[in-house]
């Protein structure tokens, strides 16, 4: 464990908590893409199947559990409890356009052709593109609530910090996982446009609006 990975995990946890609290306290999931949340729940499910078979540390197991519980709780709130506030008209990105190619790629490019490893690879590739429905929804509505933009900033920062962690681990341990690194770079690049808007607008107290 290094400070960059710890900060990355805490940023990820912060994002998940921000979103869950936003939905719970405002009793509304307006402006939030349910499809991205379903994809994130799928990412954690396929990545943490080894939760009970491969013990790394208390921290690792606790975080995996928290991520799983919070992601399913968010999906539950969006599609059941506060379903009436779910903006399905703007959340129209076709999830199958992501899941099918990512599933095929996981079969072709992986470290080890075993079920667990292919599912882990699937979760890495899927996480890279899981935010697309959310970014697509914001581009359609042309704006995002400030709390949602804080969620996205924390979520985008987590994988950016992981890239720093991978550089650090490469130089200190000689460890690198090309699949995670390439997917992590793609994932972070997808946020660049949003990062620019967040820094130039939200941090100056303005509403996050996309040029129509």
């Amino acid at each position: 464990m290094n400070i960059f990975r710890l900060l990355g995990d805490l940023s990820h946890l912060l994002a998940i908590i921000i979103l869950l609290l936003k939905i719970w306290r405002t009793r509304s999931c307006a402006g939030v893409s349910g499809k991205s949340q379903i994809l994130f729940a799928l990412v954690f499910t396929t990545r943490y199947l080894d939760l009970f078979t491969n013990f790394i540390s208390m921290y690792n197991s606790a975080m995996k559990l928290i991520y799983l519980v919070c992601s399913y709780a968010t999906v539950f709130l969006m599609y059941f409890k506060f379903k009436a506030t779910y903006d399905s008209n703007h959340d129209t990105f076709r999830m199958e356009f992501l899941v099918v190619p990512v599933g095929g790629l996981a079969f072709l490019v992986n470290h080890d052709f075993t079920p667990l490893e292919i599912l882990w690879t699937f979760s890495i590739y899927l996480e890279a593109v899981a935010i697309l429905p959310q970014l697509f929804m914001i581009s359609k509505t042309g704006e995002a609530e400030t709390i949602t933009s804080h969620y996205l900033f924390a979520l985008g920062s987590y994988r950016a910090l992981y890239i720093v962690n991978w550089v650090f681990r490469f130089y200190t341990e000689g460890f690198f996982d090309l699949i995670a690194i390439v997917a992590g770079c793609v994932q972070t690049i997808l946020y660049c446009d949003f990062f620019y808007l967040y820094i130039t607008k939200v941090l100056k107290g303005k509403q996050l609006t996309l040029p129509a």
């Binding site: 995990d9 080894d50 790394i56 690792n60 470290h111 667990l116 882990w120 460890f175 996982d177």
Partner: peptide
């Protein structure tokens, strides 16, 4: 290389 399979990152 089995160290890849033992994914210690979240």
């Amino acid at each position: 290389n089995d160290n890849d399979n033992d994914h210690d990152e979240l």
